[in-house]
Computed example of a mutant assay.
Amino acid sequence: MIRFWGQPKFSVPTGKLAGYELFLRERPTREGEWHLPADFGAFAVRDFDELLRATLATLPQDLQLVSLNLDQEQFVDPDYVAQLGRWHQSGGPQLIIELTERMGVGANQVTPVRLVEAARIYQEAGLRVCVDDVGTGANQPELVDVLDPVVTEYKYALQNVRGTVNVGVIRAQVAYWSQRAHRQHHQFALEGCEGVADLTLIHDFAPDLVQGYFFGRPHPLTIAADLSI
Rank of each mutant, 00 (worst) to 15 (best):
G32E: 15
G32A: 15
H35Y: 15
P37H: 15
A38M: 11
D39H: 15
D39T: 11
F40K: 11
G41T: 04
A44I: 04
V45K: 01
F48M: 10
F48C: 02
L51I: 11
L51N: 05
L52P: 02
R53P: 02
A54E: 09
A54M: 03
T55D: 01
T55I: 06
T55Y: 01
L56D: 01
L56F: 00
L56E: 13
A57N: 11
A57S: 15
T58H: 15
L59S: 12
P60S: 13
L65Q: 12
L65K: 04
S67K: 05
N69R: 14
N69M: 12
N69D: 14
L70R: 04
D71S: 05
Q74H: 13
F75P: 00
F75V: 05
V76D: 03
D77G: 09
P78Q: 14
D79A: 15
D79N: 08
D79F: 07
Y80H: 15
A82Y: 12
W87A: 11
H88M: 04
H88I: 00
Q89T: 15
Q89P: 01
Q89L: 15
S90N: 09
P93D: 10
P93G: 09
Q94K: 11
Q94E: 14
Q94V: 01
Q94T: 09
Q94M: 12
L95M: 14
I96H: 00
I96E: 00
I96G: 01
I97T: 03
E98H: 08
L99T: 05
T100H: 01
E101C: 04
R102E: 12
R102Y: 12
R102D: 08
M103T: 13
G104S: 05
G104M: 02
A107R: 14
Q109I: 06
P112Y: 06
V113N: 07
R114F: 00
R114A: 15
L115K: 07
V116D: 00
V116F: 07
V116P: 00
E117G: 08
E117K: 11
A118E: 04
A118H: 06
A119Q: 01
A119I: 05
R120H: 10
R120D: 13
I121E: 09
I121P: 03
I121K: 11
Y122N: 06
Q123E: 12
Q123R: 15
G126V: 13
V129E: 01
V129W: 02
V129S: 02
C130H: 00
V131Q: 01
D132N: 10
D132M: 05
D133L: 04
D133Q: 07
V134T: 04
G137V: 05
G137T: 02
N139H: 07
N139T: 02
N139P: 06
Q140A: 11
P141C: 07
E142F: 06
E142H: 12
E142G: 04
V144K: 05
V144S: 08
L147P: 04
P149E: 11
V150M: 03
V150Q: 10
V151K: 06
V151H: 02
T152N: 07
E153P: 00
Y154Q: 03
K155F: 10
A157H: 03
L158C: 04
N160P: 01
V161E: 09
R162W: 11
R162G: 06
V165W: 10
